[in-house]
Design a protein around this nucleic acid. Sequence first.
DNA 1: GTCTATAGAACGATAGAC
DNA 2: GTCTATCGTTCTATAGAC
Lengths: 218, 218
Amino acid sequence: MKTSRKGKCSVSDKTRQKILSATGKVFAQGGYRAMTLRLVTHEAKVNLASVNYHFGSKLNLMRALLRDRFEPINQQRHRLLDQQIEAHAPDPVPLPVIYDTLFRPLFTGIGSTTNKDNNLIQIIGRALTEPAEFMRGLHKEFFADISKRFMSEIQRSCPELSPEQIQYRFFLSVSTMIGTVIEQVRLETISDGKLDGKNLDIILNELTTFVVAGFQQR
Amino acid sequence: MKTSRKGKCSVSDKTRQKILSATGKVFAQGGYRAMTLRLVTHEAKVNLASVNYHFGSKLNLMRALLRDRFEPINQQRHRLLDQQIEAHAPDPVPLPVIYDTLFRPLFTGIGSTTNKDNNLIQIIGRALTEPAEFMRGLHKEFFADISKRFMSEIQRSCPELSPEQIQYRFFLSVSTMIGTVIEQVRLETISDGKLDGKNLDIILNELTTFVVAGFQQR
DNA sequence: GTCTATAGAACGATAGAC
DNA sequence: GTCTATCGTTCTATAGAC
């Protein structure tokens, strides 16, 4: 509970945000188990004990990071889809537009409310492939709703497909997104360093085109 | 150095193989850092110290596991591609056949020489998304050659595409494969439990169809 | 080859002074 | 709110008896 107003509160928020920002950086590099509180607090230039003061435990710190990064993305997805549905009403939103709406918020770095570092993509990639046990419920908590909504809009756009077909292909679409997001470095290896894994605009375009074609299968 | 013959050697190999098998199981579940030697040796029902006797270190144990699982897959890929090239000569191998050749060895569990457990897919998924530092060179060591060979065969099958287009789309194809392989469980969540993430035959088919369509983009 | 016992380092968490 | 100091745990790795 914060009882004080602007003065003290802004000071404590500063530390809180420094920790959160450093957590994102360290987690992005090595995942949860490599993200030691000693590394985080050193990166944030704060005291080791301050993590437990502000977040209670390492696990809570992790939850705070995920909320901070995932929720803005999903909110943006909902907003964009709202706009597109309205713009095309009463027709269904075209498939390429739906997938652009799904992928773009991930690539345009609106993740954190404060942190302008663009390690958002790596954080997502790590989080989605995190082996730690507590992550098991992650997909349900952050992605069950948004998946449902996008799949039903896709169904409206592709009425000729069965729900089962939609589910398989949506699964494969998200798989492509995740695989792309995990290690853009792989693109550089594959191309002998000729293609840039950090050129997110191009990758976003290629990804959307690829997934839409894969989904339509013709 | 093993100096004795069949008698003692088979005994030591038994322990070695038990450790290797248990390593695969434990690594598949939680990745490298969660794969403690205590867990492994307990699972293998051998002594903690035997790991260092047989493998020298945890890192060497990991390398041995990867070699044991990856190399048979890549050998099988080369073999199958050889066959297909010969069967279609002098025409190029059709794209769907190339991708089937690339994906199928992953799904048919020919991974280990000894371990019949089918946690091969999870091991690959974990290995490909492993955050640990030493894994950085993994793609180069195990996949640089095979990627090159498949891309050049794809180029022969799709002469109208530029090398750059091939690289982007091959990257996306492999991304889909990796994303699919990481957590088949996601398929069950997406489909409200109606689709089976363990039905590898169906997933392999859907994956190949999706990727080929995505690659051809028409 | 297999075991027990333990060294040596790193971890999350917390008590208590300021 | 911030700090130092430290507790209790767990890890890899190894020494040395059998």
